[in-house]
Measured scan of single mutants.
Amino acid sequence: EPSQADLDALLSAVRDNRLSIEQAVTLLTPSSGGGSGGGSMDAKEILTRFKDGGLDRAAAQALLAGRTPA
């Protein structure tokens, strides 16, 4: 399960175009075949909204942490 520091680094990389959204989703869902963790939004949607400015960093982190299976 990614830590808050991992999520923060991942969000920074996506925002700075050092990591594509697809690459980030793969890192967030290493063994689930890329499927959502059952959250209301999947990781790709969360990351896309964050990059487009629709979500701030704290909200994106909380959503990603919340949808990651324990």
Rank of each mutant, 00 (worst) to 15 (best):
Leu63Met: 12
Gly53Leu: 03
Ser20Gln: 03
Ala62Lys: 12
Thr68Glu: 11
Glu1Asn: 12
Asp42Ile: 07
Ala65Met: 15
Arg57Ile: 07
Ser36Asp: 07
Gly35Arg: 06
Gly34Val: 12
Ser3Tyr: 13
Gly39Tyr: 09
Val14Ile: 10
Ser12Ile: 08
Asp56His: 04
Ala65Glu: 09
Lys51Ala: 04
Val14Lys: 00
Pro30Val: 14
Asp56Tyr: 02
Gly53His: 04
Leu27Met: 12
Leu47Ile: 04
Thr29Trp: 08
Asn17Gln: 05
Gly54Met: 13
Leu11Trp: 03
Gly53Asn: 04
Ala24Leu: 03
Leu10Arg: 01
Ser32Pro: 09
Gly33Gln: 15
Ser12Gly: 05
Leu63Lys: 03
Phe50Glu: 00
Thr29Lys: 11
Lys51Trp: 03
Pro30Thr: 13
Ala5Thr: 14
Gln61Glu: 07
Leu63Ala: 06
Glu45Asp: 14
Ile46Thr: 03
Ile21Ala: 02
Ala65Leu: 14
Lys51Gln: 04
Asp42Thr: 12
Ala43Lys: 05
Ile46Trp: 02
Ala65Pro: 02
Ala70Arg: 07
Thr29Met: 10
Thr68Arg: 10
Asp8Glu: 11
Leu47Gly: 00
Gln23Glu: 14
Asp52Pro: 01
Ala13Trp: 06
Leu55Ser: 01
Ser36His: 12
Ser20Ile: 02
Ala70Leu: 02
Ala9Val: 07
Asp52Ser: 12
Lys51Arg: 11
Ala43Tyr: 15
Ala5Tyr: 15
Leu11His: 00
Ala59Val: 06
Thr68Lys: 09
Gly38Leu: 14
Lys51Ile: 05
Gly34Ala: 13
Ser31Asn: 11
Pro69Met: 10
Asp52Tyr: 13
Asp6Cys: 15
Ala70Ile: 10
Gly54Ala: 10
Glu45Trp: 06
Leu47Phe: 10
Ser3Asn: 09
Asp16Asn: 07
Thr26Met: 14
Ala60Lys: 00
Glu1Arg: 09
Leu7Glu: 02
Thr68Cys: 13
Asp52Cys: 15
Gly38Asp: 12
Gly66Met: 08
Thr29Arg: 11
Arg15Ile: 11
Gly53Cys: 04
Pro69Ala: 07
Asp8His: 08
Ser40Gln: 12
Thr48Gln: 13
Leu64His: 01
Ala70Thr: 04
Lys44Ile: 08
Leu11Ser: 00
Gly33Val: 09
Lys44Leu: 08
Ala70Phe: 02
Ala43Val: 12
Arg18Leu: 14
Arg18Cys: 08
Ala9Tyr: 11
Ser12Ala: 06
Asp6Phe: 15
Ala70Asp: 14
Ala59His: 06
Thr48Trp: 05
Leu19Gly: 00
Ile46Tyr: 02
Ile46Ser: 01
Ala60Tyr: 01
Asp16Trp: 04
Gly38Glu: 13
Leu47Pro: 00
Ile21Met: 03
Ala24Ser: 02
Arg18Pro: 00
Glu22Trp: 05
Leu28Trp: 06
Leu7Pro: 02
Ala58His: 06
Val25Lys: 02
Arg49Gly: 03
Ser12Thr: 12
Glu22Pro: 05
Val14Thr: 01
Gln61Thr: 10
Asp56Gly: 05
Phe50Asn: 00
Arg15Asp: 04
Leu10Ala: 02
Leu64Trp: 02
Arg18Thr: 10
Gln23Cys: 15
Asp8Met: 10
Leu55Cys: 03
Ser20His: 03
Val25Ile: 05
Ser31Glu: 13
Arg49His: 04
Ser40Leu: 15
Asp8Pro: 04
Gly34Ile: 15
Ala60Met: 02
Leu11Asn: 00
Lys44Ala: 08
Ile21Glu: 01
Lys44Tyr: 13
Ser12Arg: 10
Ala58Arg: 07
Asp6Arg: 07
Glu45Thr: 10
Arg67Val: 11
Ile21Pro: 03
Leu7Val: 08
Leu10Phe: 04
Asp16Leu: 07
Arg67Gly: 05
Ala9Ser: 09
Val14Phe: 04
Ala62Tyr: 04
Ser31Cys: 15
Ile21Ser: 00
Val25Glu: 03
Ser31Arg: 10
Ala58Val: 10
Ala60Ser: 02
Ser31Ala: 11
Gly53Arg: 04
Glu1Lys: 10
Arg18Ser: 08
Lys44Asn: 06
Glu22Arg: 05
Ala65Val: 08
Ser12Glu: 11
Ala5Glu: 10
Arg18Val: 14
Gln61Lys: 15
Thr68Ser: 08
Thr29His: 13
Ala62Asn: 08
Leu27Lys: 05
Gly35Met: 12
Ile21Tyr: 01
Phe50Lys: 00
Leu11Tyr: 02
Glu45Val: 07
Lys51Leu: 06
Thr29Glu: 08
Ala59Ile: 06
Glu22Phe: 06
Ser20Arg: 03
Asp8Gly: 08
Ser3Gly: 13
Ala70Gly: 13
Phe50Pro: 00
Val25Trp: 04
Ser36Thr: 12
Arg67His: 05
Thr26Asn: 13
Glu1Gly: 09
Gln4Pro: 14
Thr48Met: 11
Leu7Phe: 07
Phe50Thr: 00
Thr26Phe: 11
Asp42Pro: 05
Asp16His: 10
Leu28Tyr: 03
Gly66Ile: 10
Thr48Arg: 10
Gly54Val: 13
Thr26Gln: 14
Ala65His: 05
Arg18Phe: 07
Arg18Asp: 05
Ser20Thr: 13
Ser31Thr: 12
Gly37Tyr: 13
Ala65Ser: 11
Ala43Pro: 09
Pro2Cys: 15
Asp8Val: 06
Gly35Thr: 13
Leu10Ile: 10
Leu11Phe: 06
Lys51Cys: 03
Ser40Arg: 07
Ala13Leu: 07
Glu1Ile: 13
Thr29Ile: 10
Gly35Cys: 12
Gln4Trp: 15
Ala5Leu: 15
Arg57Trp: 15
Glu1Gln: 12
Ser20Leu: 03
Met41Pro: 10
Glu45Asn: 06
Thr68Leu: 06
Gln23Val: 06
Pro2Asn: 12
Ser3Glu: 10
Asp16Ser: 08
Lys44Val: 09
Leu27Phe: 09
Leu27Arg: 06
Thr29Ala: 09
Gly54Gln: 15
Asp8Arg: 07
Thr48Glu: 07
Ser3Lys: 08
Gly39Ala: 12
Ile46Pro: 00
Glu22Met: 07
Arg15Val: 06
